[in-house]
Design a protein around this nucleic acid. Structure first.
Lengths: 251, 251
DNA sequence: CGGCGCCTTGAGCAGTATCAATCACGGTGG
DNA sequence: CCACCGTGATTGATACTGCTCAAGGCGCCG
């Protein structure tokens, strides 16, 4: 059995606890640190509304008008863009504590879909309120800027991956990134349960699902990971890191 | 001859004109619209410093500490990220009126290189001053948010390109995007002079330089473009658009 | 138990990469 | 002025990665 620890807040019934940034255990993930009581309270008021999204449901869709950013409380999302001719591309997977919806700011309209890969709950943060508060609360202003910049830098990394890595490297990067983010949330640093299909992983990594599957099998053969359906155990993280920086060019 | 019109500001001697946002003909590209005289003046003061970068020189490099955003006045840049093992990936090409440096905000340190592909001049905008002013000038706050969101959306597009398009589609997207942005700056809508090498185009598009070259040759054979070194004339923009949405999947 | 969604695996193929030779252009120095 | 050189672009031949098409297999749920 792959025992994945479940953080306390998942076990608690959300209806029985007061949900507010000030006592949210994800606070340090989505909020600036070092706020005063009063500032925290003002932010609490801004994040008054929460929204549940069922597995498979959309938090927002391409073309819908943009009003709010969302902080993920629980659950797991993918975001994806599409061309008119039907192809689509997963642009990211988001987990608890991450902010989603930044794409909508520029045109006041979302330019991608955000779909829940498991039942999820998000904090709704109306963007005009964010702008208003970030004029008054300096650390919040910083924080908003950093979140957007972080997303830009993350996407640079994905571009590097898509533009110059081979299949094995892509999957290795993906697994290490996934497990690192989960670890930061209190989960194991070497075991994970994938919330997405092989096809979604492939879309994200610019590969076909068969290639993802084959690459998993290759890693298993080489003793680097154990894979049982969506349960993955990383046996040799260093091997994964070596794959990334080996780049088998050899002349 | 491919006659590319040269905008007035390039012909003017920059030493003889007062360079200030308030009389900059790129204003509507990098500044919010509808500002009062007084607001514009405050922004002018923020953008007091300009900096010239020679062709091949770096505006900033990966690892350097972040202090400012830069608005390109003249010239042309590429930004690129690199892995430890030497591979690198061009993440974008930037031209006059565009903002560069957003990657540095999150860690107060740049995470990519910005290199001038031709002699360039930028307006230096200290980021702490931007934050300060955007607390006071609402349209500026909006503008900063939109610029960052626009970059995120742009990168989504690149991810779609890198993740799911074939070589011809990538080059077609690249050419149309390039010419569209140049057109918005007063240049021809069907002729362009590439400021970057085939290798840099390839890096941006996730292709090898030979593939870029071959794809150009293919387009020439098909009568879609004329290519003479870095001079490109688009003869059939619709053909390029058709390439993008054809996706030769056929079942 | 049967159907369905998702995953795995195989065989053959297509599209790019790789390696290598040559060419075009621009700049330099004799 | 021209020969030479270096950089970047083109083109060809071949190799190889990942894609396509196809056939099961596994696990879950009604």
């Amino acid at each position: 059995m792959l025992g994945i620890p479940i953080p306390a807040h998942v076990l608690m019934n959300p209806l029985t606890i007061k949900v507010a940034c000030s006592n949210c255990n994800l606070r340090e993930l989505c909020m600036p640190v070092g706020l005063s009581e009063h500032q925290l309270q003002r932010i609490d008021e801004m994040v008054a509304v929460r929204r549940k999204v069922k597995r498979g449901g959309a938090l927002f869709r391409n073309g819908e008008s943009f009003t709010s950013l969302y902080a993920i409380r629980t659950g797991f999302f993918k975001t994806c863009v599409a061309t008119e001719d039907g192809r689509d591309q997963v642009t990211g997977f988001q987990m608890a504590g991450e902010i989603i919806g930044l794409d909508g700011i520029v045109n006041e309209r979302h330019s991608c879909d955000a779909v829940a890969l498991e039942d999820a709950e998000v904090c709704v943060m109306p963007f005009d309120r964010i702008e208003e508060l970030s004029r008054a609360i300096l650390p919040l202003q910083h924080h908003v800027h950093k979140i957007m910049s972080r997303e830009i830098v993350r996407e640079h990394g994905v571009m590097l991956l898509l533009g110059s890595m081979r299949a094995e490297e892509r999957l290795a990067v993906f697994l290490l990134n996934m497990v690192q983010r989960l670890h930061a949330r209190g989960f194991s640093s070497f075991e994970l349960v994938l919330r997405m299909t092989r096809e979604e992983i492939g879309s994200y990594l610019g590969l076909k699902l068969e290639t993802v599957s084959r690459t998993f099998s290759k890693f298993v053969e080489e003793g680097i990971v154990q894979v049982k359906q969506r349960h993955v155990r990383i046996l040799d993280a260093d091997a994964l890191r070596r794959i990334i920086s080996s780049q088998q060019a050899c002349h």
